[in-house]
Design a binder for these strands. Structure first.
Lengths: 190, 190
DNA sequence: CGGAAGATTCAATAATTACTGAAAATTGAG
DNA sequence: CTCAATTTTCAGTAATTATTGAATCTTCCG
């Protein structure tokens, strides 16, 4: 593993982080390496750089493909497959969020809906269902928000995020607008 | 494990989900059980309900305490410790988000900042650092937004999330305000 | 205090997950 | 079509992580 120390630190960090998620160390390191690489890499280069077996890299790449997190390219006159990450980092974040939603949130919503169909047999079940309803509604609210925000293009999204602390003001403003009466002209930089 | 079927489905689901995160099955199941329970439970009750050993439950509860996700109570005249989850589900979500930030995001930011201090030795390192800067800035933007939104009380937060699809409109509005000139009265329900 | 109820720790082991090398499958150039 | 380059699969093994029961520690009642 003869990576520049900077790269190595980053790669090892994401290996560790990977373990904390469901994603394993190998996959984390491969993605970190691809993320930093100036050009696409083939499986042998990855195996060589990270000191993993060729087959391990193959499986890791397969996993990353199932997450839609890598792009596949071919160099002319070279049969090997070259992998890279999207240039636009926001694309990565969006894909990650979409996939996690699909894999974790959607099944949970399905389970909750199914279980909420049952008629409760006693007070304990009634309480359990009430709790699950709270969770269901919360998840729907969050994913609804996510689906909407997901539609924004990068610039609008960044603008929205930068709004941050000013959100309260905007909300108050929205209230005022709903009521249909604008306050004074003094907008205090919204 | 003689739980009502509804509860059992829910508990098993969160056991599975737990495994997909770093959190293990036991911890997921314990939390799911506590979340649904109408009253606080002690370690023996949990062990009995889920069919885990007493010591496993003890470790699971310790883990949950380290995440600040459980509340500890005592029943009068009973030396045993009783555990429950917050009544307000938003408290749970907030705590979860705070802890994940503390455990995953903050160390990543620290790593990135450290590595970005180094002077790049060549073009590959320069490129790697540029990539890391992008990541750093993105994380800062997201966590900054989070820290701000975190300040809102539940009602304001829910209001904000419900805004969802209307966010674009609010942004346009903000633009108009910044410019300092309101358009026509026609507000189209913001 | 003494001791029993309760909680925690920890070394042993069970279960799961990661990783590998060899073999098989696929691909594409000639 | 053939064959060599490349990728994938998979059964075996290594490594990690989860779980347990026994031992230890803590608490507090009498």
């Amino acid at each position: 593993m003869t990576l520049p120390p900077i790269t190595q630190t980053f790669v090892l960090h994401f290996g560790e982080m990977g373990s904390r998620w469901g994603i394993n160390r190998t996959v984390g390191q491969i993605y970190a390496l691809l993320f930093l690489s100036p050009q696409p890499l083939n499986a042998d280069q990855i195996a060589e750089s990270l000191g993993f077996s060729r087959s391990n890299v193959s499986m890791g790449l397969k996993e990353l493909e199932s997450w839609r997190l890598v792009q596949l390219q071919h160099a002319p006159g070279d049969r090997r497959e070259y992998f890279s990450t999207p240039d636009d980092i926001w694309t990565i974040v969006r894909t990650l969020a979409e996939e996690r939603k699909r894999r974790e949130v959607d099944p949970t919503l399905t389970m909750l809906r199914a279980v909420l169909m049952d008629t409760p047999a006693n007070n304990a079940e009634r309480h359990a269902q009430a709790r699950m309803t709270e969770m269901h509604d919360l998840i729907e609210l969050l994913t609804g928000w996510f689906d909407d925000v997901e539609q924004l293009d990068n610039d609008a999204l960044i603008q929205l995020l930068n709004l941050g602390s000013k959100v309260r003001k905007v909300l108050q403003l929205k209230e005022r607008i709903k009521v249909g009466a604008f306050g004074k002209k003094k907008s205090k930089r919204a």
